[in-house]
Design a protein around this nucleic acid. Structure first.
Lengths: 198, 198
DNA sequence: TGCCAATGTAGCCACTGTCAACATCGCTGA
DNA sequence: TCAGCGATGTTGACAGTGGCTACATTGGCA
């Protein structure tokens, strides 16, 4: 167990690199994320990260996976703390998602762009895990008649597309200073009730 | 006017570089887009692009601006060729947008990520120009009672968020092989009519 | 026609990702 | 207890890249 500094073996270099990389990501974006700079900031030689991340892509993938875990935890706890009707639960989920995007815009951008990477399978699975509670929420709503069950796939697609769009808008500061809850409540309301006057 | 090859002055190097860069972008994505490789493919020395694009960022910005012009043209012609009711026009616009994203995924990704760039002002203006016809469509609909005028900003946000989300999903191949028109019609229908049974 | 600004070339530097050879450490089994 | 071995970190090298400066070539204009 390492207690002092300046020792040959770091102790938990993988975690340290990942943490430093996430900080750098939020500061400079993925483009400015250099393996050598991460190593320097971690106080380790430029070749050290290679033992834990064979190449730059592996580090980015690890960041994305970590991001999905963090997002999944937020979604789960948001839904766990909310009982009640479908709209309320959908709004709670949406708030968690949009809020995460708003506070982790560069990480979110990386997570989204990862869907076309070579090892995407692994990461898409992480995505699915994170969104599982939300998918379950929609499934239940379709079963209980809270949403029109006509074409469940279409409704799922519309809900997720709307939330992704909101998260994007919010993450890029295009929603002004409007609180997340207002932003989400308005958009979710529009989708649930429709934008055509009843 | 250049007629032969191997001449010192290219004639229209800026346009040639831009075209080659857009091709490379669609092949390898923005990360793999190297100034020197673009120069090689264009048959010119590695320093030549500098006269037209001071740095790599300038080339990417030019690509994004070109992209917004292409997208704007598609949207405009889609709306020009469609008369009739609001839902039909909204669907036509959405189809043009989603279809563009589907066929230019890497370019679209670049266009979206550009909103946080240093010279974003310029590019956001290009974005606004491209989407002006759609914004006008929504404004008219609010005026004529086709959509609930309660909170126009909220409705605009919801519509654009939904479409952006759809475009993203479609651009990343997450919508399977479903035709764009079906995808869009379903989602637009869900938003216009609401997902709660009436 | 001679000159000049625009355009393209060539070479340099710092930085990066990747690799291979080597150093150091901690753990394990005899 | 301790030799040795696998895991972990270091060092040096290489090619590719973006950006810069000095120089070459060209076409158009006074």
């Amino acid at each position: 167990m390492p207690t002092g500094r300046n020792q040959y073996h770091h102790g938990n270099l993988r975690a340290a690199i990942l943490a430093e990389a996430q900080t750098m990501l939020s500061e400079t974006g993925a483009d400015g994320l250099s393996l050598r700079e991460v190593a320097r900031r971690t106080g380790v030689s430029h070749g050290a990260p290679r033992r834990h991340f064979p190449d730059r892509q592996a580090l980015l993938s690890a960041l994305v996976e970590q991001g999905y875990e963090q997002l999944g935890a937020r979604i789960e706890s948001a839904l766990a703390g909310t009982g009640g009707d479908f709209t309320g639960r959908l709004t709670a989920f949406a708030c968690a998602y949009v809020d995460f995007a708003r506070h982790n815009d560069e990480l979110m951008t990386l997570m989204l762009s990862s869907k076309t990477w070579p090892d995407a399978g692994h990461l898409i699975a992480a995505n699915d895990r994170a969104f599982a509670p939300a998918v379950e929420l929609l499934r239940q709503a379709a079963g209980s008649g809270d949403i029109t069950p006509a074409d469940t796939d279409t409704v799922h697609m519309a809900v997720l597309a709307l939330l992704h769009g909101l998260a994007f808008v919010a993450g890029h500061g295009l929603a002004g200073t409007k609180p997340t809850s207002d932003l989400v409540a308005g958009a979710v309301g529009a989708l649930v009730e429709g934008i055509r006057p009843r």
